[in-house]
Amino acid sequence: MTRTIIGFVLVGLALLALAFMPTQLGAYGVGLLLGMTGYVTLASAWALFSGPTRYISLATVAFFGIGAYTVAVLSEAMPYPLVLVTAGLIGLGVALVVGLATLRLAGVYFVIFSFGLAELVRQLVTWYEVNVTGTLGRYIFLPISATEIYWQLLGLAAITLLIGWWISRSRIGLALKVIGDDETVAAHTGIDISRVKLALFAISATIITLVGAIQAPRWTYIEPAIVFNPTVSFLTVIMALLGGANRLWGPMLGAIPLFLLFEWLSANFPNHYSIILGLMFIAIVFIVPRGVVALAEDLFKRARRKEAAQ
């Protein structure tokens, strides 16, 4: 119990320090923190659902884009906090509908479906804009500074980690682990597989929607090609996998180094970025298939065992 309290105090202090950082950094530093926090939240939210259930979802950008579009459509019609709530509700609604229809799919079928979902949403938005509103690009003129966006993302990241922590110690977390290991066994032990998966999928999707909604004011102009960029989905997956999707801090430990690495690569090797990115993907799958956190735990255990043997 005391360990938990100490943990919470430490995390709280870290959050305070992070929230204070923009005052010490220039615009680029804030931009970097903002982008990093965005991906930490995306990867952590993705891992909430995909980590325990082992469902690789490529639908991240579908929800991310829905969030951004909601802000673009409503930013002038209602106050900003209400826009965020609406975006979250829309994300939740879409996730429930989609989840009900598809979470019975498993394995590669779900991967393909989730990728298709992102494209479907993009085409639907495009169709609607073309045939109903008659414009495609939309403008967001909200007076929200980068620091404010960063604070919102930081708060959302903290909430995401808190949810992850709570799930891992609750009955639903245990149920998820069983589902991830063997769905048949889980069904036989009386776990309501569909409901658990649906709940997690909905929470994860809502958070991802909010990330898109919070980040959108930074771009001024959005169109489907900009906010439904599939790279977001791929980067989220690879970050979570690098860190380890089954650990609470795993996605964060994957997202931060990769984000910094991409930043460094695009600055120093603008022409070779894609090649290096591809090699990285291969390397991660080969070398750390379960993530660096699990790898570190293995090494730690091995060292302990050696010690014990001596």
Binding site: G38, Q215, R218, W219, Y221, V227, T231, S266, A267, P270
Partner: peptide
Amino acid sequence: EYDDRSSAE
């Protein structure tokens, strides 16, 4: 020279 990787962010 930087590459924006065709991404608005």
